[in-house]
Design a binder for these strands. Structure first.
Lengths: 247, 247
DNA sequence: CGAGGTGTTGAGATTTGTCAACCTACGTGG
DNA sequence: CCACGTAGGTTGACAAATCTCAACACCTCG
């Protein structure tokens, strides 16, 4: 994985002329309650279907923050690093938003790396902010977008701060499963896009611990695991594991 | 500590007629680059110096999100809970902002509890958002405010995900120290407002572990610890501890 | 077919949690 | 004003969880 920044390589930009207004991710990216002409204006901000090959960075830590990205297809991880320490802060799939980490400091605070060949839509943040000043529902939508990131992060903090290994992994798998299900994929049969090490980094565990927990879940009949192909056989037991006594 | 919600008990509201424009926390709460008449309009949004007695909740999980709060004086913790699990998600001191957790879902996702008698200014969020639509620098300020919360949370995620006990505690003390220093207090002599248990909850550790680490730091001559009175004798060593090898 | 990245498993070391005892400081009520 | 009760803090011994290191299997991709 070379991890060179893929932007602003305009050659990689493939505009398929699919407007936001007809996009299948519409309800995820667009605010409700805005009218046709407003959608039209929003459409014009969006640089559509930027390709990000597997292993490439969509943006890197320290780069000036300029845009938000909606994942159109593919799978990403975000990775923070400081003082030799590295930590996966999240995984983003189609219909989710990347780049919110840059709003606070005007610079990106983590790298966004494609874990498979992916496509994103790019929205210049200044333009989005400007437009949101004139369209109240868009402003509300933007606030919610950033605010939900705060809530997500706090849930991960709780996971890292109060759960033991098996609980973290169970919670992670259930979360992935739900997110796949929302997108119309199977909630039980998942193809993980990340390595054990990346899972471990996200969950605050070593890769061996992740592997051992997966094996244990498989032994217990809760999962079927074949490398990255993970099937949830008994989601209820996973939920019970999450709810079990805290650390 | 009764922890009853202190709002909307208007009797507790003490308006000292100190406007934002002359407030000592001005640079923390007010955006730069807005003019006098704009400041005036912002002033009018602010409900000043709401008193929150020690142990009371400024807001609670599940309540509709209506306002942001600037801590004027005092000290708070925010506490998330779900399924019997409880986790301190942060500590807020004078000049810092509370309530951002509610933006994402329109409801607060954690409790804000005063750890000592405190005062806050209250800013109705809808009004702030409305005003920010007309004052671009205010909008920018608001975005940064929420965005910085994301960055803060991600730093805590890294702390919880990659550091061992001593490192977490060292990083926590240095962070507190810096925040006190910024406010003109001593960077070395601190009076902690929280219990060992609350520190532990924030850091993903048991209170005994926190206590042991503090004792060890004291033995090593890095700290002087007398209950909640903690003096940093050697910040450099603390920094080295933080930078030391990861888990 | 080989190499390297990825994943699994075992044994032992280390860190952290658990439980218990005890100490101290503080606030309350007599 | 003192005594007492309680919450908070410290420390020790031990248990449990997780990490570390190592060996090896597997799979994919040149």
């Amino acid at each position: 994985m070379s991890e060179t920044s893929v932007l602003p390589d305009k050659a990689a930009l493939v505009d398929l002329k699919v407007a936001c207004s007809t996009c299948s991710l519409r309800e995820l990216c667009l605010p409700v309650g805005i009218n046709a002409s407003e959608i039209e204006r929003l459409d014009q901000l969006v640089e559509r279907r930027v390709a990000v090959p597997r292993g490439a960075c969509l943006y890197q830590r320290g780069e000036p923050f300029q845009a938000l990205f909606a994942v159109k297809a593919g799978f990403f991880k975000t990775r923070a690093s400081s003082g030799g320490r590295e930590h996966v802060t999240g995984f983003q799939m189609a219909g989710e938003v990347l780049g919110l980490d840059g709003i606070g400091t005007e610079r990106h605070t983590c790298d966004a790396v494609a874990l498979e060949d992916s496509q994103v839509c790019r929205i210049e943040f200044d333009q989005l902010a400007e437009l949101s000043r004139r369209i109240a529902p868009l402003q509300r939508h933007l606030h919610r977008l950033i605010g939900r990131e705060v809530v997500r992060d706090q849930r991960v903090m709780m996971l890292l701060g109060t759960m033991r290994a098996e609980q973290r992994l169970a919670a992670f798998l259930l979360n992935l499963s739900q997110r796949f299900a929302i997108r119309g994929f199977s909630a039980s049969a998942m193809l993980l896009r990340m390595t054990r090490e990346e899972m471990g980094s996200y969950l605050g565990l070593k890769l061996e611990t992740v592997s051992r927990c997966l094996s244990k879940f498989a032994d217990d009949g809760v999962l079927a695991v074949h490398n990255r192909d993970v099937r949830i056989l008994n989601p209820q037991v996973l939920e019970e594991i999450v709810e079990a006594a805290t650390i």
